[in-house]
């Protein structure tokens, strides 16, 4: 049987149903996520200079983004070209990582193969360095 609900008075289309709570929640989440995006991407003036590839949570490759290269990870084929990275091919079912295409910032995550490809900016901070080797 259908339970009595507190929505019974809303019978005239969608608009009258919307309440102030919906509106406030929508705005709050919007501010939080857009603020979060600015926090994550906004601080980076340039996109990053290294491509870091982790397999099974272990860093396997740390490559310069400005050297074109194709890396065979057995399950994935990763391509670096023109300061961009993509998964060229993958043997997983849905190939989401391949569909993501070229990225020049952020990351590509392939869950089935536990591969994380991240573009990072590895910069220096000499204020905290005590000595340099090289």
């Amino acid at each position: 049987m259908i339970k009595k609900t507190n929505l019974d008075f809303l019978k005239f289309g969608l608009l009258p149903q919307i309440r102030i709570g919906d509106f406030l929640l929508f705005i709050l989440l919007l501010i939080l996520s857009i603020g979060g995006m600015f926090y994550v991407y906004g601080g980076e003036t340039n996109n990053g200079n290294r491509v870091i590839i982790e397999v099974n949570n272990i860093e396997q490759f740390n490559l310069p983004i400005d050297v074109d290269k194709v890396i065979d990870l057995r399950h994935l084929l990763v391509e670096i070209k023109d300061k961009k990275v993509r998964v060229k091919d993958a043997d997983c079912q849905n190939k989401l990582c391949v569909k993501q295409g070229w990225i020049d910032r952020g990351s590509i995550i392939c869950l089935p193969n536990r591969v994380v490809i991240i573009i990072k900016n590895i910069k220096n901070n000499h204020a905290v360095i005590d000595a340099i080797s090289g």
């Binding site: 929508f26 989440l29 919007l30 939080l32 996520s33 857009i34 603020g35 979060g36 995006m37 926090y39 994550v40 991407y41 982790e54 949570n57 952020g106 990351s107 995550i109 869950l111 536990r114 994380v116 991240i118």
Partner: peptide, 21 residues
């Protein structure tokens, strides 16, 4: 369970949540 890379997760979290809204 799968990707212990907090950085990578934080990077995609706001976008996913935004689309979710």
């Amino acid at each position: 369970l799968f990707i212990h890379n907090l950085n990578a997760m934080l990077m995609i979290a706001p976008l996913i949540i935004l689309i979710g809204i």
